[in-house]
């Protein structure tokens, strides 16, 4: 069905983390990473990314 779907369903995390590595101040990416860690109940990491996002765009209420 999805020929490129990897066995590890967390592949998307790899790409978001890689993106973060090359562009650590990308607000959208920080929010996504925060949300994904929050969803997986890894709250320390989620807070870390949301805090970084709030530093990048302090006025953004999202």
């Amino acid at each position: 069905m999805y020929y490129f779907l990897p066995k590890d369903e967390k592949t998307f995390m790899h790409y978001f983390e890689e993106s973060y590595r090359y562009f650590p101040s990308n607000f959208d990416n920080l929010i996504i990473l925060g949300f994904l860690y929050f969803r997986d109940e890894i709250y320390e990491k989620a807070i870390q990314f949301f805090e970084l996002a709030s530093k990048v765009q302090p006025d953004n209420v999202r």
Binding site: T11, F12, H14, F16, S19, Y22, D28
Partner: peptide, 14 residues
């Protein structure tokens, strides 16, 4: 090394 591209890939897999 394109971060936007990597982010797009992540979004697609998600």
């Amino acid at each position: 090394n394109d971060p936007i591209l990597l982010s797009n890939m992540g979004s697609l897999y998600y």
